[in-house]
Every structure is written in C-alpha cells, then in structure tokens.
Nucleic acid binder design. Structure first.
Lengths: 153, 153
DNA sequence: AGCAAAGCCTATCGGAATAATAGGGTATGC
DNA sequence: GCATACCCTATTATTCCGATAGGCTTTGCT
C-alpha cells in the first residue's frame, strides 16, 4: 500500500502535467481541485522540488510547475522519494540497500531469493511507467465514458 | 517493504517445510534456529493456524506442522494475512476492496489506473510462487556455494 | 517604498501500526 | 499428576503517518 502522501504527490504531479508548462500553478489551486490538505501539500511539493521533479517561483504570481516533460518522470522515482524503497526487503533494494539485521547469509536467504522476482518485475513496471502514461490513461478512460451503467439510465 | 512479522512467518513456514511432515516442531526450536523472538513467533503461528496454513498439537510432544504440502502454500496468501492487501491502493484490491475516501470517480482515477499493471503483475507472481519454490531456491543457492569470493581464499 | 501574495521553513501533535514482552490458562503424554 | 507445550489476553515502547500551526522570506504590482 502506498501512503496518502505518495497518492497526493501523484495527483499533484498529474495536475501539473495537465497545466500549460512553465505557467506556475498555485498550491492552493492544486489543493482545492485535488482535495488535498493545503499545508500538507506544501510539504509534499517541497520534497518533490528537492528531488528535482518540480520547480517553483516565489512571490506574487508564483507557483509550481514540472521540471521536465511528463514522459521523463517515472513513477519509480516518485515512489522511492515519498514511499521509500520499492524492494520488499531492504537487502534487495538497489537504490537503498540495507542489510537485514540478524541475517546470516544473504546469498542463501529464502525470503530474499523468493522475493527477487517480485522486485525485478515491480522495478521494471515502475521505471517504465511515467506521468505521461498516467495522464493518457485518464484521458482514455474519460473519453470511454461511464461503462455498462449507462444502459440503465 | 514487508513487515518483520511477515518475514518471520515465511522463515517459520520454510523451516516447517524442511521438517518431516506430520512431525510437530516446537515453537522454541523454530525460534532459536531462525532467530525469532519466541513469544512473538507464538502470535504469528497462531495467526497462521487460524488461516489454515499450519496445524498444531498441544501438550507434551506437541508442536506445529504444515497443514498442506509446501507447493500448495502460495506467498500471496501468507502476505495477505500478515502484511495486508497486495494492492498498492485499497480500491484495486480484489480480496480486500475499500473505496479510497474522497475519490470522486474510480473509473477515471489516474493513480488507480496507472498502478493497475503493478498490481496485476504482483498478484500473478505471488500467487504462483509457493513455499516449495522458496525451499528449492535455498537448496540451489546452497549447493552452488558461495560465489566469486571462493576464488580469493 | 510598501504592501499583499505566494512559497519556504521548522516545530508539533494525535493516532495508528509495528515489534515485542508478560503472564497466566489449558490441553496432553508419560 | 506433573511437566511440557501450545493458547489467550493485555500491555508497552517506538516509530510512522497524516496533518496542523505559525511565522519568515521572496517577489510583483502599484
């Protein structure tokens, strides 16, 4: 399960991806439209900025905007920053390796060995899925319109 | 990241899988051999029993043993019980669905849509990987012996 | 210059989950 | 009948999550 924080981050990034580039968007606007507590969103955006996903302009007519095009921002990066390592056990993580305490031999640890496939698959998917994909899927789903239910109106 | 509890559970189950079937194993033995706090392991095994993964015999010469053969026990089941849903967002879970609060339309939620692939892939892997696979991998890794390092002794 | 709008920074906090620990109760076999 | 081993309930320390609070600083506009 990803955290609220991560979910908020993705929603905010998606919102920015849908706004004209280099036109700063107000925190307050994102907060209201995406239903995110304003002050909490501030923290999240600050963290996203610190890691290079977004940029900001201060003062009047300031706001936030994406640092690069949506297709350059992979989910993996965002998740790693806000949700922690993608790996199911710390000893599998490539970006944040930590030895499991009390583990006698990593090379023959069953738990580690058996979770490796899950990890590889997850990384592959999350590295190759971008903000652009997110936006595109929403577009497609919106155009398709509400499904079966429609027939009962 | 899976919890310690889940990791302990997998280790305990693997230990049982390596023991002769229907020969009860003591909690104390598993705890010592796998380096798990004894009382904590009790709780975990109780939970595993409650969900039908293991059985137990009380009193003298009692202990725990697997309820079925290791190749019938998928990681997915164990993880779901001890670690919670496999789904990255509650609204994707098939076994524990929950509506994300404040979500206006599930069908067009970008976060949900974009995480669906991850979920499907995870479920597929975890449903098809069993305790038997875990044991087998350890066997293979043990036989292969320590890798490159060996050449430097 | 000066004020208001906007992001920036640091601290704090309640509640839930995690990882245990404690201590007795109950069934079973020798 | 007693020791052994699982069973059950409660408590606890620590950490993380989700959020709130309040003031500071930068910037644009007049």
């Amino acid at each position: 399960m990803i955290t609220m924080k991560t979910k908020y981050a993705l929603k905010a990034l998606a919102y920015l991806a849908n706004a004209p580039p280099d036109e700063p968007v107000l925190i307050a606007e994102i907060a209201e439209k995406e239903d995110i507590p304003r002050k909490f969103l501030e923290l999240i955006l600050a963290e996203l900025k610190q890691h290079g996903f977004v940029q900001s302009r201060k003062g009047r007519s300031g706001g936030y905007f994406l640092a690069t095009s949506p297709d350059k921002i992979a989910l993996a990066g965002v998740l790693r920053v806000l949700d922690g390592p993608i790996a199911p056990v710390p000893c599998l993580s490539r970006t944040n390796y930590r030895h499991c305490d009390g583990c006698r031999d990593e090379a023959t640890c069953g738990v580690r060995l058996v979770l490796q496939d899950l990890y590889e698959a997850s990384v592959k998917i999350l590295e190759s899925t971008t903000l652009a994909d997110l936006v595109e899927r929403v577009d497609r789903a919106t155009k398709e319109g509400p499904p079966v239910l429609r027939y009962f109106i």
